[in-house]
């Protein structure tokens, strides 16, 4: 297992690039889906008020 984590001496490069990649993808996804929820709620509220 240690050998796997070590990555032949390139551990810091490999793990940091994978970490940054997936972290930013997840953050970006969350930002968008939370924004969508917020906007849908706002839109539905305005529709209700108009009705």
């Amino acid at each position: 297992m240690n050998e796997l984590l070590d990555m032949g001496g390139y551990a810091i490069f490999v793990w940091s690039s994978y970490g940054i990649f997936f972290f930013s993808l997840v953050i970006f996804f969350l930002i968008n889906i939370l924004n969508l929820r917020k906007y849908e709620k706002m839109y539905n509220n305005t529709i209700k008020k108009i009705d």
């Binding site: 990555m7 032949g8 390139y10 490069f13 990649f21």
Partner: peptide, 18 residues
């Protein structure tokens, strides 16, 4: 692992698609 670049080659699997 790649025989020249070793394990740093694995970064390519996320770099190339992006």
């Amino acid at each position: 692992p790649d025989y020249i670049q070793g394990d740093s080659m694995r970064i390519m699997y996320i770099h190339v698609p992006s």
